[in-house]
């Protein structure tokens, strides 16, 4: 599904990713861990097409297409979703309205008619129920004044509505309380199937107890310094990053 080959990337002239290679197949879950500032969010933003990051070298293929030739909008429409570490607030734009615009953008791309607002409302209610979100979040403005945890839940709500093929969740677990973490994890699990894939960026192995990764990668200074299975995450939790980073 996704093939990243020798990816080098810069922002404002600083080299942040220094040769990342990663292959994700349909049905797989990959966890990406690593110390602060190691480049995890950078990788996520590059995958979703953020214009501030400059790819200096390397290649990214998504379902055999050259991802680097697509802008953020096209990437989203072709099935990539990034749950932001810090979702931006958009005052004045209604949350439900925003979700409907995103949903309809797909419909329009597929040459279908826009969804009936009442049907959409029903769909939205169903997904919000699954995530234990109160109805009032429909009426609120997009992330405007949302608490840290509410913002994260709202990201997963978007994912549930958009049903991406590849979701990259950047520290979705940070900021969620224990119950919310479980709800969100259950939500994410319920969206899984053998055709889609997941990249989970996290600092905590607790999330990985709920959403079980097939692979765990450790990112350090813009490189993947170690890859393994779930056991690697457990080991990191007890030992910290020193043992992987000093080995190199």
């Amino acid at each position: 599904m996704l093939e990243i080959k020798n990816l080098h990337a810069r922002v404002d002239g600083n080299e942040i990713l220094e040769g990342i290679s990663l292959t994700v197949k349909a049905g797989e879950i990959h966890a990406v861990m690593g110390p602060n500032g190691s480049g995890k969010s950078t990788l996520a933003k590059i995958l979703s097409g953020h214009p501030s990051y400059e790819v200096a070298d390397g290649q990214i293929l998504f379902e055999k297409n050259n991802l680097l030739e697509m802008d953020a909008e096209e990437r989203s429409l072709s099935g990539i979703f990034m749950g932001f570490q810090y979702p931006v607030e958009v005052p004045g734009v209604n949350n439900a309205e925003f979700l409907r615009m995103a949903f309809n953008a797909r419909r329009v791309r597929d040459g279908e008619e826009e969804i009936d607002p009442l049907d959409f409302d029903e769909l939205l209610s169903e997904k919000m129920k699954m995530l234990k979100m109160e109805n009032k979040y429909k009426e609120r403005n997009l992330n405007d004044g949302f608490s840290g945890g509410e913002k994260k839940k709202n990201e997963i709500l978007q994912m549930a509505i958009l049903k991406p093929k590849l979701a990259i969740l950047d520290e979705t677990d940070s900021g969620l309380d224990i119950d919310a973490l479980r709800t969100v994890a259950e939500g994410v699990n319920s969206l899984r199937n053998e055709k889609n894939a997941l990249i989970l960026i996290t600092h905590y192995q607790r999330l990985l107890d709920y959403i079980k990764p097939d692979f765990v990668h450790v990112l350090h200074k813009g490189k993947i310094v170690k890859s393994g299975d779930k056991a690697l995450a457990i080991e990191l939790e007890s030992q910290g990053y020193d043992w992987v980073t000093t080995e190199n």
Partner: peptide
């Protein structure tokens, strides 16, 4: 209106044009 806001819309498949329209009409 920030570039980050527009990117947020675009990353959900909403065109830049529709994004600006949504933010402005909200305002």
């Amino acid at each position: 209106i920030s570039e980050e806001q527009l990117f947020y819309f675009e990353s959900r498949g909403i065109s830049r044009e529709n994004a600006i329209e949504a933010v402005i009409s909200g305002f």
